[in-house]
C-alpha cells in the first residue's frame, strides 16, 4: 500500500518554478531516497511534502487523503514527522523538553500515552536518557542528530521526512547517524530521505528517486541501480559514481 504519493507536483518561489511536475510513490515501511545535485529541487520537494512551500499544481496524497491544500501543522497532526535540514534541535531547551515538544500533537490527542512512548524512545536512544536534562545546544553533532530523529519518532508518525541528515557531520558521526536511521528503518516507519551524500543515502534507502532540475528522471529499487545510471542521471562523473557504487555493492551484498 502507498503511504505517500506525489502526482505531477509543481512548486517554487515567486516567479521561479523549482519543481516541474514531480511524481513520487512511497510504499508502506520503505525508505525512499531522493537524490540530486545542488539546485535539483531536493529540499523544495521536502518542503512541498511538508506543506511549507505550497504546491502550485498536482496532488499530494498521504495515507489515501489528498493533503495538497493542508497546512504544515495539519500534516503533522495526520502523522507526518520531520528531521529538518541542519537537524534544528531547539538549542535552548533540554533534551526532554525537545522530546516533549516533538510529541506536541500526540500529547494533545492522548497525553496518557506519552510516558510509555517516551520510554520506548529512550530505550532506542539510551544516550538521550542519560542527557535528558542537558541543553540540546550543548550536545555533540551526532547526539543532536539522534535527538532530531528521536523528536520526530516520539510523535509516533507514520511517515518521517529526513532532510540532508549527514550534512556537516564527520565520517564517524555519519556512521553513528546511519545506525540511528537504521533503528528507525527497523521499526517499520516509512521514510523519505533526501541526501546530497549519495553514498550515505544509498546505504539506507530501498528505492532511489533521481532528481534533475525539478523532475524525477529515474526511479528504481537500490538493487537495480548501477554506477552508469548514477553517473548519467546525477551527472557526478565516473569517479564519484564509483564511490557511490561501492555503497551500492555493499547494499546488494546485504
Amino acid at each position: 500500500m502507498t503511504t505517500l504519493q506525489l502526482v505531477e507536483v509543481t512548486a517554487g518561489f515567486g516567479a521561479v518554478t523549482v519543481l516541474h511536475g514531480i511524481d513520487l510513490d512511497v510504499k508502506d515501511g520503505e525508505i525512499a531516497g531522493v537524490f540530486g545535485l545542488n539546485g535539483a529541487g531536493k529540499s523544495v520537494t521536502m518542503k512541498t511534502i511538508a506543506g511549507i512551500v505550497p504546491a502550485r499544481s498536482g496532488q499530494i496524497w498521504f495515507d489515501g487523503v489528498d493533503i495538497t491544500r493542508l497546512d504544515a501543522e495539519s500534516r503533522v497532526e495526520m502523522g507526518m514527522g520531520h528531521v529538518p535540514q541542519g537537524r534544528q534541535v531547539f538549542a535552548n531547551l533540554t533534551v526532554e523538553e525537545n522530546l516533549r515538544l516533538g510529541a506536541y500533537t500526540l500529547r494533545r490527542r492522548d497525553k496518557s500515552r506519552y510516558p510509555a512512548v517516551l520510554d520506548s524512545v529512550y530505550d532506542r536512544f539510551p544516550v538521550l536518557r542519560e542527557r535528558r536534562t542537558q541543553k540540546a545546544g550543548t550536545m555533540s553533532g551526532g547526539q543532536q542528530a539522534s535527538l532530531a530523529v528521536a523528536r520526530a519518532l516520539v510523535n509516533e508518525p507514520r511517515l518521517i521526512l529526513v532532510d540532508e541528515p549527514s550534512a556537516g557531520l564527520s565520517p564517524k558521526m555519519q556512521g553513528d547517524l546511519r545506525e540511528v536511521l537504521q533503528v528507525v528503518k527497523d521499526s517499520g516507519v516509512t521514510m523519505v530521505l533526501v541526501e546530497q551524500n549519495v553514498a550515505f543515502g544509498l546505504s539506507l534507502v530501498d528505492t532511489a528517486n533521481l532528481l534533475q532540475t525539478g523532475v524525477v528522471v529515474h526511479t528504481a529499487p537500490v538493487a537495480e541501480l548501477d554506477e552508469d545510471t548514477l553517473a548519467t542521471h546525477l551527472g557526478i562523473g565516473r569517479v564519484l559514481a564509483g564511490a557511490t557504487g561501492s555503497a551500492l555493492t555493499a547494499r546488494k551484498k546485504r
Partner: peptide, 13 residues
C-alpha cells in the same frame, strides 16, 4: 522564539 520553522514542523501553530 528559537526557531519558528522547526517549531511549525512539530505541529505547533
Amino acid at each position: 522564539a528559537d526557531d519558528a520553522p522547526a517549531t511549525l514542523l512539530v505541529g505547533v501553530r
